[in-house]
Structure formats: C-alpha cells, structure tokens
C-alpha cells in the first residue's frame, strides 16, 4: 500500500440521497482507521438530529441520515465541525477476542504455498500468524465478516487467481495484509490457513456478531481433535479461560 501524504482534511462525498461518506486518505493503515473510528465515536456522542447510522470502513465513514429531517448541505456543515478535533488522541474502549484455530492440514490447504512464497517452514508461518493481535478494521461482506490486520508482510499474497466457489463457515484466511474469519459458507479468493469451531456470528443472537470495528482478535492454536469435538461446553470453558 502506498502512503498518501495529501491533505489530512477529509472529503465529504454523496452516497445517494440518504448517506454521506467522510473520506480519509486512500490507504489501509491503523492510523487512518483509528481516525475513522474516532470521528464515528464523536459523531455518535453528539447525537445529530437526523443521523440514523454510522458505518466505518478502512478509510472512510458512511453517515446515514434521514433527508426529511436534515439536508445534504446542512449535514456536511455540521460534520465539518468534527474535523478540528485531534482524532488520534481519543482512546476508545475495545476488547480482544481470542479465537481457537486448527492450522494446516485439510484445514489450511494454502499454508504450503504461503510458506514457499515466504521461504519459511509451515511451522514458522503458523507461528507468525498466531504471534500477534489483529485490529478489526471493519465488519462487512454479508454476515459480520471481520476485516483484520496487519499480518506479517512476509505472508502477504494477492488474491487467488481462481477464487474457490465454496469456502466453509469458520475458515481462517489471509490476503495482502489482512486476515478474516468466514462467518457464512460462500465463495472466496483469499488464502485458507485454518479453521475455527467458534461461532463469531449467529443471526439468532443479540448482538449477532461477537466483534465490532475497533476490537482486536488473536488466534490461539488448538488440535484437530479439539476442533472436531468442539461443543457448547468447550466454548464456555474457552470463553472463561480466554474471553472474560
């Protein structure tokens, strides 16, 4: 990713007649995303009449609004007031979710290719993946999919030339500097490194997603046997040990 050194003042772009995008520089970075999340926090706290929802992405924030209550120009003027705030200085509470993962074998068919590319052993690759916490940049796709990063640059690979038509729910995958957990079986062009029996998205729970933008995740390796016999009890024990 190239760093854009242009003005740090965001742009206000229309996204149809019911949303405005507050656009920051074109880069995926922790620093930029923290500014996105901080401005979201400030706007939320100020309860602007007519603003209905705030949706953070890597480098922009979508502000949804009701145009019956407030028009585009008026809302842009209101939002500009948050520009001056020192967005890096504000600390937002976040949690770290520890996720049990079985790496490699049938659960991680792309590990070998990643190891070849990085000129490392499979064990070293797994060790790099599990060695750090990852920041949740945004939640998106179709069902609470967390876009997290940054993975070690040595493991960075572009999307697969041939996306897989069907990737199982629970699959741990990586692409470029990102990693994510598949929350629903669907097609994917990312590289598969492991699988988790933990359900991080359940439409029948409230909230349905265990994660939100701004949280952290960390992968903790478990054995294939543990993964296969995972049940509600193991999940409860796991959460007591790691996620309390």
């Amino acid at each position: 990713m190239t760093t854009n050194t242009a003005s740090r003042t965001p742009l206000y772009l229309p996204m149809g007649d019911q949303a405005i995008i507050i656009q920051f520089e074109h880069v995926i970075s922790l620093e930029t995303n923290k500014r996105v999340q901080t401005i979201a926090y400030l706007i939320e706290s100020s309860q602007i009449v007519g603003v209905t929802q705030l949706i953070p992405a890597f480098n922009n924030l979508t502000v949804c609004y009701d145009p019956v209550v407030i028009g585009f120009d008026e809302l842009v003027e209101t939002l500009k007031k948050f520009e001056g705030d020192d967005l890096e200085q504000i600390q937002i509470n976040s949690k770290t979710l520890h996720i049990p993962v079985v790496f490699g074998g049938d659960y991680g068919p792309d590990l070998e290719e990643i190891a070849d590319h990085a000129k490392l052993s499979i064990e070293e690759v797994v060790s790099l993946i599990q060695s750090k916490r990852y920041f949740v940049y945004m939640i998106g796709f179709i069902a609470g999919y967390p876009y997290c990063g940054d993975i070690d640059p040595r493991l960075s690979l572009p999307r697969r030339a041939n996306p897989r038509g069907k990737v199982e729910k629970g699959t741990i995958q990586i692409v470029n500097n990102l990693t994510g957990i598949f929350t629903m079986t669907a097609p994917s062009g990312w590289h598969i490194v492991g699988w988790t029996p933990m359900e991080i998205f359940n439409p029948k729970s409230d909230p349905p997603s265990l994660l939100q933008a701004g949280d952290y995740i960390q992968y903790i390796p478990i054995s294939e046997e543990e993964a296969q016999r995972w049940n509600q009890d193991s999940q409860r024990e796991w959460d007591q040990k790691w996620n309390m």
Binding site: H26, A57, N59
Partner: peptide
C-alpha cells in the same frame, strides 16, 4: 478497484 467500503441499496 478501491479499498473496500460500504455499499448500499441502489449503488
């Protein structure tokens, strides 16, 4: 390509 971001109905 852009850096992935929000899409809404009608986009």
């Amino acid at each position: 390509d852009i850096i992935s971001d929000f899409i809404t109905v009608g986009t």
